[in-house]
């Protein structure tokens, strides 16, 4: 146990160190943009993980929060002016908007069967997408619009550290949330909703809390994404954005938070690679097909995600090594859920 914890801390420190030094190692805009992309998508995927991995709710309209965050910041900066006040106001406004929409959608659908939330989020996300396409004189429709940001924010390196900071902060806050008593109730609901209800928890309220946290976090990711691109088009509201977040969450392993970060890195790197390949080989323009197959295979055969499958493997190896050194230790690997164990250790 101790061995593994130490290893994790060391690995994490090394990784953070490396990531923090990337801007000094390369001044390639493409690399910095890709990394920033990964950070922001990781925030978005983590917010999805709160719903899917920690509460067991499926949403097909998460792009609604992401996209409206980007639009709110973009519209404010374009029409009111590219100042710091507007940037901060825009981010705050998108967080509040995300909260309100999450509460609205949640209270419409969470009282009924779980399938309803998925349908209703999908419907409202489509509605927002159609609205963004049709309100051409404000949003620019399909072509979108570009806008200016405060001088400092258009510096790639500054934005790189800003989004890295946002990622670290969100990870920490969400981690504390999932380990809080409320977060534990969410996991209880995921495991067995009837039992959680029988224990006296108001399941509806906790689910609503979960959608609110996820919605606000996704809006943050979206508003930062808008600031990074300095451009918004209707594609930020599309179902593909939701599916991407979903894919990142389940590839990395749902219900772990860090899985979402790894998933974001994996999916973004592969997407970047395929987009490059598609320029040379038109065959790769159909890469969503490949992603779809990977997605189906993961849902069917690796419901715990690739990270769990991998960490299960390393754990077994570590366990064998430890058992040889200290046969009295009767710890068995894989007995408790990763996420739960991490929390238990802190207490």
């Amino acid at each position: 146990m101790k061995m593994k914890k130490k290893l994790t801390v060391v690995l994490l420190a090394v990784l953070l160190f490396l990531v923090a030094f990337i801007p000094f190692l390369t001044d390639s805009r493409a690399t910095l943009n890709l990394m920033t992309h990964i950070f922001l998508w990781a925030i978005f995927a983590m917010s999805y993980d709160i719903l899917l991995g920690y509460t067991g709710i499926v949403s097909f309209g998460h792009a609604l929060f992401f996209g409206s965050g980007a639009y709110i910041v973009g519209l404010l900066l374009k029409y009111v002016g590219a100042s710091w006040t507007n940037t901060i106001l825009g981010i705050l406004a998108s967080l509040i908007f995300g909260l309100l929409v999450a509460l609205l959608l949640g209270s419409l659908s969470l009282r009924i069967r779980d399938a309803y939330f998925a349908m209703i989020t999908l419907a409202f996300a489509e509605l927002f997408l159609v609205a963004a396409l049709k309100l051409r004189w404000i949003t620019g429709g399909e072509d979108g619009f570009s806008f200016r940001v405060p001088e400092l924010l258009s510096n790639r390196v500054v934005f790189y550290y800003l989004s890295l900071g946002a990622l670290i902060l969100t990870t920490f806050l969400l981690y504390r949330f999932t380990c809080s008593p409320a977060g534990r109730v969410l996991q209880a609901i995921r495991e067995n909703e009837q039992r959680a209800e029988a224990l006296g928890y108001d399941v509806f309220r906790y689910k609503l809390l979960s959608t609110a946290v996820a919605g606000v976090t996704a809006s943050l990711a979206g508003s930062l994404f808008g600031l990074q691109m300095r451009f918004v088009s209707a594609s930020v509201l599309s179902l593909e954005k939701t599916i991407d977040a979903l894919l990142m969450t389940i590839i990395g392993g749902s219900g772990t938070l860090y899985g979402a970060i790894i998933g974001s890195a994996l999916v973004n790197l592969v997407q970047d690679w395929f987009t490059g390949l598609a320029r040379v080989y038109p065959l790769f323009e159909r890469w969503p097909l490949l992603f779809g197959f990977v997605y189906i295979i993961i849902v069917l055969f690796f419901p715990g995600g690739l990270v769990r499958a991998f960490s299960g493997m390393t754990e077994t190896i570590l366990f064998k090594w430890q058992a040889r050194r200290n046969p009295a230790d009767n710890y068995t690997p894989g007995k408790q859920d990763d996420a739960v164990r991490v929390c238990l250790k802190r207490r």
């Binding site: 899917l52 067991g56 499926v58 097909f60 779980d114 399938a115 998925a118 599916i243 979903l246 389940i250 159909r286 969503p288 097909l289 992603f291 779809g292 197959f293 997605y295 189906i296 849902v299 069917l300 419901p303």
Partner: peptide
Amino acid sequence: VSQMLLTMGLMLVLGE
């Protein structure tokens, strides 16, 4: 949960 995720994946693949 798996059903919804799976059928959405099928939608993606069949659409592509």
